[in-house]
Amino acid sequence: MNLCVAKEVSVRVGAKLILDNVSVSIAAGEWVSVVGPNGAGKTTLLSVMAGLRTASGRISIDDRDLKELSPRERARLLAYVPQHPEIPPGMKVSSYVLLGRTPHLSFLGMEGPDDFRLVQQVLEQFDLATLGQRTLESLSGGELQRCHLARAIAQATPIIFLDEPTTALDLGHQQQALDRIRRLREEHQVTVVMTMHDLTLAGQYSDRVILMSEGEIAADGVPSEVFDPDRLSDLYGAHVKVLNIDGHLAVIPMAEY
């Protein structure tokens, strides 16, 4: 069953077509990575599917047209973590994660005991319980990334959109972040759509990869099919090799000297 469907979506900025008649379907429980060179339209597609950017065409989540939903109704269906989330100065970790409960509160309402309890569980799941009273700006990059994910999980939505969730993380933290997303996905049956630059990680963790180029979908399928060396070399303008190491894909740029 398709949870999220984007049909014939186009975005134009001035004379430039950022997305050109793109259609995508995301099945419930799927982990989909949107990859492609810089300027391919990955982030635009993600923000359009998250209902945060206007576009022509139709986007539906759980068979409900996003344009017909109020922001609050929409935020109960999908959570979104941008590439560079805001870090409000002086805000405590627990307060930050509590903001994820916003769409579940009544108009101008405050959190109740159930919200506090749920957020406490999320803090523990993300190993943030001991950091709850720390301010966001005092955290390391890896800890901050966990906070952003925790806020999205606290939103308790069936689908989460993550814009390059491993940006600015070192190798170990990238792997830990994606492992955590995998565990959360299994525990909560949440559908994950994310943009990625690292093709190796995208290939190893995702069920499916959408390769974009110049506002269009160049390929869509399981990573082993999409990551064709010639196709990637052509799209990225680089010499690329795809290795299969014990069943794990590795996409490696090769120096040409």
């Binding site: 923000s47 998250a50 109020s70 979104y80 805001e86 916003t102």
Partner: peptide
């Protein structure tokens, strides 16, 4: 953007 993503106008 993020305020909008959690349901605020």
């Amino acid at each position: 953007v993020e305020a909008s993503s959690v349901g605020i106008r």
